[in-house]
Design a protein around this nucleic acid. Structure first.
Lengths: 217, 217
DNA sequence: ACTGCCATGTAAAACGTTACATGATTTT
DNA sequence: AAAATCATGTAACGTTTTACATGGCAGT
């Protein structure tokens, strides 16, 4: 149900085509949402029928005509109602964390490999977001203007950046922890090795370091 | 596509009914996935047809018979293949962040109110996860055993806890920043007030503090 | 020559949510 | 007396993804 409001929110400040919206969902808005063109176009059609948005057509040579959408009064009202409605409880979907959760089924070296590879992916995402931040920062500073809209997108950008920083740090610390207990992966296939039980007390200090303050109170 | 592997991953260590799986998706696994019973039951049916899992029926008095599922060799192989496949790039969906992003359309007091309310929600989630952590910690310590599975679910639990801690801190810092520039919301409706432009240089110090290290390099 | 960008969309398949359907037992 | 827990599922609806379909222009 949120794609609708992602579109209305964006159109509440700028006009855009379906293609423009897609770029925004891949760029800044990717911090909180994403969508395919094949979903955006029908949604724009529905919103126009509901009279939440209106379009004008700009003919182009050699390309399909541009359909430029803008928000209507009814659309602004719909957006406002949604902004005032209580936020949904977050339903997380993170398939990498799911993989990690079951990686005890994988050889030790493979676990380290997967964690390192994912850390790199997240580092790239962080770099991309830092680019967006610096671009915006420079443009705001140059024009020397400040608006509530700029403030709100800045705080969202910070959330995106922090999410990446946190994920990267977690990867680093988790790799360290796993590397500190390779013995846990020695058994499994070998029946005789199963007798070699590892006691929690052996790894407790490493665990305490890893969890840090989170174990308090 | 991941619900399948969420089920296979869980069944790779314990037998379970559909109902048991739902509880796990609402409890520990909620850190990375969630699902409804009406999706879990058909998925279990499909997995049984594919011979990735097998079931036995336990008759009960007054309740429908329990169908207890366990993983097969083929299921284990499927899980392993998935664990070795490259992780999907994360596609975030966070409708609260979407709301925040467009809250420049809302009155100033309403923005503060929404942020405070959401912070409270996240604090409750954190408290729930801390309970799970302590329960597990106590049980592990008592039995004094350590396994790769325990390690991997511990690191995921840490990720879940840190996510909440980060969200709460972000809410707090963002409330502070918004409270430091109420002037940004004064205009909007009033045409005469629009001439009163706010310059970025006026709020730059607050911004620098808010972003901190993230603006470096 | 091939890849990527611009610009529109449709159709089919997969995935996810809400509502419906049943009913005993236990807790508040 | 009402709500929650246990335990299974189906049907309808809504959302998201992948595949199909077109075609010029710019850059490597």
């Amino acid at each position: 149900m949120s794609l609708k409001y992602g579109i209305l929110g964006f159109l509440s400040k700028w006009e855009a085509t379906g293609y423009d919206l897609k770029k925004e969902f891949d760029d800044f808005m990717s911090i909180f949402w994403h969508s395919h063109l094949s979903q955006i176009y029908p949604e724009l059609g529905r919103l126009e029928q509901e009279e939440c948005i209106a379009s004008r057509t700009l003919p182009q040579a050699g390309k399909p005509d541009k359909k430029i959408y803008s928000i209507t009064e009814k659309g602004k009202q719909e957006l406002l109602n949604w902004l005032l409605s209580p936020p949904e409880t977050p339903k997380l979907k993170d398939s990498f964390l799911m993989q990690v959760s079951f990686m005890d089924n994988l050889p030790y070296e493979e676990v380290i490999f997967q964690l390192k590879a994912y850390q790199k992916e997240r580092e790239q995402r962080l770099a991309r977001m830092k680019r967006i931040l610096h671009e915006r920062w420079d443009s705001i500073r140059e024009r020397n203007i400040m608006k509530a809209r700029i403030l709100m997108s800045s705080v969202v950008l910070k959330k995106g950046l922090e999410q990446e920083v946190q994920y990267i740090r977690w990867c680093r610390e988790t790799i360290e922890l796993v590397e500190s207990c390779p013995a846990l992966w020695s058994g499994e296939a070998d029946a005789a090795a199963e007798a070699l039980e590892i006691h929690f007390s052996e790894v407790e200090p490493a665990f305490l370091r890893y969890f840090g303050e989170l174990l308090e109170d």
